[in-house]
Structure formats: structure tokens, C-alpha cells
Amino acid sequence: MNWAGVMPAMTTPFDSNGAVDHAFLAQHAAWLLGNGCTGLVVLGSLGEGATLEYDEKVEALKTVIRAAKGKAPVVAAISSLSTAASVKLAKHAEQLGCEGLLVLPPYVYSTDWREMKQHVSAIIAATRLSCMIYNNPVSYGTDFVPEQIAELAAEHANLHAVKESSTDVRRVSAIRALLGNRLEVFVGVDDAIYEGVAAGATGWIAGLVNAFPAESVELFNLARARKLDEAFDLYRWFLPLLRMDTVPKLVQLIKWVQGQRGVGSANVRAPRLEIVGAELAEAQQVLRTALANRPKINEVPISNFKGA
């Protein structure tokens, strides 16, 4: 498992009846890889994993694994209400052919380090797969601080990476200061990618990449190459869109952008509802401005991957 580069936190497409649209899911996966993404993360927060039934999660993983055709790793995001359910899904993901796991805290329940450590440790130990711990205190109420991440790394040889979504870019430096190169550090919030790479992050679990993969990959590559002026010019253009990834309605907003670009639909599962009113008007203005000033970066069209 090579934890590096831009790995989309894939959205899960739904048809007009609310069922997972597997044909488009496969096409979308192939398109993302065709535009330079290095792996695919399925079933995460942006993928509305909490709304998917167990069998739907399994079928989504199967579809993306088939679409990837062994060209890039497929990572299963693992979270549920209980430790037992998370362990079950982790084992199933290994059997299906996933190459990595993104290990999340449990839904709903947030508690102390003793219980959270037990939960994520059980998932990491359940398979031989390479694992990434997901730190997102804003969304999950659980904050894995650098010292706790170091403790997990010392006890689990197959913990290889961390998705750092605390929104505090200093965490990237703190993890690296404690662990050196023991773990790869990925930025997990879109509007911190420029700063995160400058601090030493080696990857990006990205959101707006679902609609703008070529720009996302170019931005990351420029930042990693330390072409700071070029990277910042692109970042400045991209920032109003990237900020959609850091608000409570990130799923609705990113899917809406996909729909407007013709690379997905705005369909979401309740309790989420599509954006309307002032929120819609604001998103429309942001996207209009972005498209009017879009930089010239070659993007392979999604139509090339129909039937993937």
C-alpha cells in the first residue's frame, strides 16, 4: 500500500429512487484515476457511509475494486455504531481485495482515550491490511492527539498513515516531530492542503476532487514540488470551492458541484436534503466565478470512461 498523492474521499452516487448507482460509481472511479488520483477511498463521511446498509457498503466496495482494475489501491473507510460491526466490515474489505483501511472513531459515541484506543486498535488488528487512522475532532468529537497516534503506531506495525482533519496544520508538524517518517501524514480538509504540504504532508484525502480532479492533482503536485508561487496561484483560485469541504453540508455542496459539472448528481440520502435558497445562491455564485476564471489544466473527460 503506497500512501501518497491525491486520494478522493469518493461520494456515493444515488439514482432518482435513492439506490446506489453502481454504473456511475464505476465510471466516476475510473475517471478520477484517469486524471491522476493515486487511490480511492470509499464509504467515508463524504460517501454518506452512515446512511448505507451493510450490504450496500460491500457492493460499493466491489464496484470500485472492479473499476480500479488493480491500477490503484482501494481503501475502505471503516466506521459503524459498534466495534464488532467495524471489525466485521474490515475483515470483509480485506476478503474483497481492498488494499487499505481508513479507521474512524465510532458513529455517535465519543469518549475517553481508553475506550477510543480499544475501538480503533481492534479494527487495525483485525486484518493484515495497511491502515490509516482518521483524526477529525470537528465531525466526530474524538481528537487523536499526536502523542496518542504515536502510541498506536508503536503497537501496530500495520498502521502506516494518518488523515489529519483537525483543521490545525500545526498537527502535521507535531506528528512528524514525534514520529519522523514512521507514518505518512495526509491532509484531510481541502482548504489546508497548501499549508499542510508545506509542513510535510505527503498526501491528500480530498473532497472537491470529486468534481475537479485535474486541478486537485495539479495543485498537490505543484505544492510537493515546492513550486510555491504556481501552487498558490492555483490554490487562490480553488479556495472558495475547497471551503465547501469544511462545512456541515459538505456532502450536499460537493455533490451539487458534481451535478453542475456533469460528473455526478446532487442526489443525497435523508436526513440530508439538497441545498436551496440562500445556500444554493451562494454556491451558484462561487461556482460561476470559479468556472469563469478556471485555469487551463488538461482534464480527461468523464465520457471517456463510460462503461468502465
Rank of each mutant, 00 (worst) to 15 (best):
S216A: 15
L43D: 13
L250C: 10
I205Y: 00
T111N: 12
M10A: 00
A77G: 04
S110Y: 01
D112G: 02
P248Y: 00
V209K: 12
V276D: 09
V197Q: 02
A67F: 09
V197I: 15
E56N: 09
A19K: 15
L222I: 09
A29D: 06
G180Q: 07
V300T: 15
E299L: 10
L222T: 03
F220T: 08
A214I: 01
A93T: 14
D245I: 05
K71L: 06
N2D: 01
V263G: 04
G39L: 06
A125K: 05
N210W: 08
A266F: 02
L52T: 05
G180M: 06
A4G: 04
S265G: 09
R114Y: 03
K62W: 00
L287G: 02
V257Q: 05
Q252A: 14
L291N: 07
H119L: 01
A9N: 12
P213Q: 09
A266H: 07
E155N: 13
M7C: 12
A125C: 11
N181H: 07
V108Y: 14
K57A: 04
V251I: 15
L52P: 05
S110F: 02
Y235N: 12
N304L: 08
K163D: 03
V263K: 15
G18I: 13
V64T: 04
T246Q: 12
D191V: 01
D168R: 10
A308H: 13
A67E: 15
G5F: 03
C98N: 15
E215L: 00
Q118I: 03
L25F: 05
T246G: 12
A192Y: 06
